[in-house]
């Protein structure tokens, strides 16, 4: 179990990335939603012991990982948002090297796990090619393979499906679902659908704070009856933005469709709709800004 208490981080240029953040994660898949700049990656990097916060506590399985980072690293699998690889090193060699770095000293066991992971990520037939020649999706799969080396108790994946095609995304989701049966998987993303599909527990983060946390269906219940929809013309949008709490605006067949958060029907012409995760997301971050 992972407990984060009163985490604070301000960068040297004055940006406050983490603002008194509190979070608890039990086993299984946990989704962390938030816009760019919310502080998700800062949080992920702090959890992965790559960054120190200004103040706060992070307890994982009874140990404070800020004072004892090695206790986290011993059980950690981390897939960062962006990473590169050494040129001219094959997938199997590089994975093997990471396995050594993760303490898999026994050669037989190590080779076994490396091969198994390569197969699981569908990279086995490419194992002798150099990783630097892989496409984006293959590289991402390699990343998850190295994150799964050893037997991590917590896997942190930061924006893992950005840049993957739909088929790869599906495959990736299945893999994550498989892992999450026994470990904590923290999935940080701005793709609402991914959280929707995978996560029994989630949080929404904005401006360095957790603005909503809980099981998705429970959070959505809070919004029932408060989301209204109307189709309007493009010129009217600005006017509505000034007078109502417009949480989203999109184009459908050339016309603007707006969603509004309101306890009761705002105006003639609005129809109530079933809130979905996207509405939850937009309403949460708009409230955070206001």
């Amino acid at each position: 179990m992972l407990t984060i208490k009163q985490l604070n981080k301000t960068y040297s240029n004055g940006v406050k990335a983490l603002d008194n953040l509190n979070l608890t994660v039990e086993h299984g898949m946990f989704g962390l939603l938030g816009p760019n700049g919310a502080g998700k990656s800062s949080l992920m990097r702090t959890l992965a012991t790559l960054q120190s916060p200004d103040s706060g506590e992070i307890i994982f399985n009874g140990k404070n990982i800020l004072t004892d980072p090695q206790s986290m690293r011993n059980h950690l699998g981390y897939l960062p948002q962006e990473f590169g690889v050494y040129p001219n090193v094959s997938a199997v060699d590089l994975l093997n090297h990471f396995a050594i770095l993760k303490g898999l000293i026994n050669k037989v066991e190590r080779l076994e796990q490396v091969n198994a992971l390569l197969q699981q990520t569908n990279l086995y037939q490419h194992r002798k090619k150099s990783v630097s020649s892989f496409s984006g999706g293959m590289r991402q799969r390699f990343g998850i393979a190295q994150a799964l080396l050893g037997s991590p108790k917590i896997v942190i994946v930061d924006e893992p499906t950005a840049g993957l095609d739909p088929q790869e995304r599906n495959r990736f989701h299945n893999l994550l679902a498989d892992i999450s049966e026994k470990t904590i998987v923290i999935l940080s993303t701005h793709i609402v659908e991914d959280v929707n599909n995978l996560c029994p527990d989630m949080a929404i983060m904005a401006s360095g704070k957790i603005v909503k946390q809980g099981a998705p269906h429970l959070l959505l219940n809070q919004l029932s009856g408060c989301i209204w929809r109307k189709q309007i013309s493009k010129q009217e949008v600005e006017q509505f933005q000034l007078t109502h709490d417009v949480i989203s605006q999109r184009l459908v067949a050339g016309k603007a469709v707006i969603h509004i958060l309101s306890e009761s029907c705002p105006e003639v012409g609005f129809e109530p709709i079933q809130a979905d995760l996207e509405d939850l997301y937009f309403s949460a971050i708009n409230t955070a800004v206001a």
């Binding site: 690293r73 690889v85 770095l101």
Partner: peptide, 18 residues
Amino acid sequence: VRDRNVKITELIFSTKVS
């Protein structure tokens, strides 16, 4: 410096290598 150059640092630093 190679780790920085290819941006593999985060992967390496998050392993348990001492």
